[in-house]
Amino acid sequence: MFDGVPLSWFLIVATIMFFVGIYGFLVRKNLITMLMSLELILNSVNINFVAFNKLLYPNHLEGMFFSIFIIAVAASEASVAIAIIINIYRRLVNIDVEKMEEMKY
């Protein structure tokens, strides 16, 4: 209990955010919107880590460091992903994920 807010509330918010991100990842056709969904997913995980850290092991910093590293990874992932997207756009003049199937069978 953290000043009246239990841990499970944080977790439920994070879960909702996570699965909304999943839903977005599954339905969005535009690569950039898919990337945004991915950011949502990563963010929800961050919330989990931080909440666990603070509410269960307040004298440690692991959760927070995990979050920091995840943010760093997310930043690099976003930059590379966007580079790829721009490259794809340059070649195919669209970034619709359903049309990228040249490598199938």
């Binding site: 599954l26 339905v27 994920v97 359903e98 990228m100 069978y105």
Partner: peptide, 17 residues
């Protein structure tokens, strides 16, 4: 079974999830 290998990223993701 080659239909499974559709090249559709989101289909794969759906199956995975």
């Amino acid at each position: 079974i080659k239909g499974f290998q559709s090249g559709q990223l989101q289909q794969y993701a759906w199956v995975f999830i």
